[in-house]
């Protein structure tokens, strides 16, 4: 199993780069994963990442993209509740990429 290093500490990740143990997540992991994708995380990114973590905490799943956009629109405003906005933030696919940064497992059956 490969790993990523954050603040001198190693964290195991699976073959697709998802954190092996989500309980070990620290915010620095998201920054390091983003840097590997040539991305700098802004407050807008963190809104989504934090939302995903809260959603997972409550429901024990990562939401499908359709559910994510609807919920983001409700929580952060209609102008953000669409997949165009989310794809601009996370060009590799909002659910997949943002979930990876958030330390969540890969969402089942979605982009």
């Amino acid at each position: 199993m490969s790993s990523i290093t954050v603040d001198g500490k190693e964290y195991a990740v699976d073959e697709e780069g998802y954190l092996a143990d989500l309980s070990t997540w620290v915010p620095g992991i998201a920054d390091v994963m983003a840097a590997q994708d040539d991305l700098t995380l802004t407050d807008e990114h963190w809104d989504i990442i934090n939302f995903l973590r809260e959603y997972y905490e409550e429901y024990q799943i990562a939401p499908a993209i359709r559910v994510l956009t609807k919920a983001i629109g409700k929580k952060l405003g209609k102008e953000k509740g669409n997949s165009k906005y989310l794809y601009e933030l996370f060009p590799y696919g909002p659910a997949k990429q943002a979930c990876r940064y958030a330390g969540l497992p890969k969402p089942t059956g979605c982009v």
Partner: peptide
């Protein structure tokens, strides 16, 4: 084992 019962609360979103 993972308690997946909270996930039933998400079904309304779907």
């Amino acid at each position: 084992m993972k308690n997946f019962s909270p996930t039933f609360n998400a079904l309304g979103d779907y």
